[in-house]
Write a protein that binds this DNA or RNA. Structure first.
Length: 408
RNA sequence: GUGAGCGUAGCUCAACUGGUCAGAGCACCAGACUGUGGAUCUGGGGGUUGGGGGUUCGAGUCCCCUCGCUCACCCCA
């Protein structure tokens, strides 16, 4: 194959059939989001680099090595958004929105990772941000909304894992204790974890190699403040009230620094190593971090491609209702006018734009999947009728243009 | 960034230990059917076997480099 231009690694072409799948997912999501009081927002694809460094966190992998950052012609450092929350919070502040406010989006995000199953460099997320609500009910509702969306998409087997990482202070306290604990076992840790020990000690517990060995590691629950604990318990109470199954995973950590208190992930089979389809949590410090007043918030994002892969979704590309086949120059001219009228009436109809044999036109008609073929030739012109052929049954009947238009 | 596997027509794949091995099916186009698709038959276009170098009388087939794809690690949706 000697193609001159190819897709950039980790990007995809979304063809007509998959476009239908995505549209269906988004329509389902929209319907439910409206039910929960969400409005929709679209923010720019790129923002000032500093916005993401500030919100996602300087020391996170996303910021350190996964951002598509470039300098524009004015010498400003810009970045293709690696996630959706930062831009939405920025827009919330910039547009002086009044809390509480619920904002949902469907947008592409970019991360320069090595692609693999369920992981792309450009991928799409459906996300929600509930800004200005600090009550545990908001956490619980957000989780319940995520579950509702996934069920609506068709998921049957889902595992909800959740944890609380408390406030920034709680986490700092826990971090210190954990580092102390890990330092004593430094020699037993794998290479990666020795490196992670000071940078991201919470991650060590999640390590596939070392995690299981550290059964007696300090538990974050023991280091949460009373308020934090109570908040988390309230969240669990609501989930139980609604009969939502969950599993507490005290080693669940998120890769973005802005999270506080509740963090959660929905996992599923069929995704290879990337088994999380939806993840999120509370981020009470972010609005303030970005220059606003102290404002609690909670949200999540789900990976559209992961949903499609996990559920093995597909759909038919759109088909026209009619396809016009002509014989002779006069008939073609007649068809050109007819097709315009039909389309003006809202009917989907197409024809061959290159003059071809009737056989070739019929083949094209067949391939487009049209329900009916409209055949126009000398006979039809002289009788002022067109022949409608049912492509399924092969039945044909003559109709006047007026009758055809009425039929729709 | 690290590791493993794979790269032959648009697609799915053949070609024994290096020797008519550059093929098949599907798809596409045309004809059989000078006004009719999806079936059948016939024919046609399309590949510098990802690219470069090497070994050899001779290389998709062996060696090296390179590019690309896939999966996994890391991390994440």
């Amino acid at each position: 194959m000697a193609l001159k231009y190819k897709r950039i690694k980790g990007t995809r072409d979304i063809l007509p059939a998959e476009s239908e799948v995505r549209e269906q997912l988004w329509q389902k999501a929209r319907k439910i989001l409206l039910r929960y009081g969400y409005g929709f927002i679209t923010t720019p694809t790129f923002e000032a680099t500093e916005l993401f460094v500030r919100s996602v966190g300087e020391a996170t992998d996303i910021v350190e090595k996964e951002m598509y950052t470039f300098t524009d012609r004015g010498g400003r450092s810009l970045t293709l958004r690696p996630e959706g929350t930062a831009g939405v919070v920025r827009a919330y502040l910039e547009n002086h929105m009044i809390p509480p406010v619920k904002l949902a989006y469907y947008e592409n995000v970019f991360r320069a990772e090595r692609p693999q199953k369920g992981r792309l460099r450009e991928f799409w997320q459906i996300g929600v941000e509930f800004i200005g609500a600090g009550d545990p009910l908001a956490d619980a509702e957000t989780i319940e909304l995520g579950l509702t969306l996934l069920k609506e998409f068709g998921f049957k087997e889902l595992k909800l894992e959740l944890n609380s990482i408390g406030t920034v202070e709680d986490r700092q306290r826990y971090r210190n204790v954990l580092i102390e604990y890990l330092e004593k076992r430094k020699d037993e840790l794998c290479e990666d974890c020795q490196r992670r020990l000071y940078r991201n000690p919470l991650r060590v517990l999640d390590c596939k190699i070392d995690g299981p060995k550290l059964k007696d590691a300090p538990n974050i629950m023991d280091y949460l403040s009373e308020d934090s604990k109570r908040h988390f318990e309230k969240v669990l109470e609501y989930l139980e009230l609604w009969g939502i199954d969950y599993e507490i995973n005290n080693r669940l950590v998120r890769g973005l620094d802005y999270y506080t208190h509740t963090v959660f992930e929905f996992k599923t089979a069929g995704l290879g190593a990337q088994n999380t389809v939806l993840a999120g949590g509370r981020y009470d410090g972010l609005v303030e971090e970005l220059g606003g007043p102290p404002t609690p918030a909670v949200g999540f994002a789900l990976g559209v491609e992961r949903v499609i892969i996990a559920l093995n979704l597909d759909a038919q590309p759109p088909k026209p209702e009619y396809f016009i086949v002509t014989h002779g120059d006069e008939a073609r001219k007649f068809a050109v006018e007819l097709i315009r009228q039909l389309r003006a009436e809202g009917i989907s109809v197409d024809m061959s734009h290159n003059p071809k044999s009737m056989k070739a036109q019929m083949k094209l008609a067949n391939r487009t999947g049209a329900r009916y073929t409209i055949i126009i030739g000398e006979d039809e012109l002289s009788s002022q009728k067109v022949k409608i052929r049912d492509m399924e049954s092969g039945e044909e009947k003559l109709l006047s243009v007026g009758e055809l238009l009425k039929l729709g």
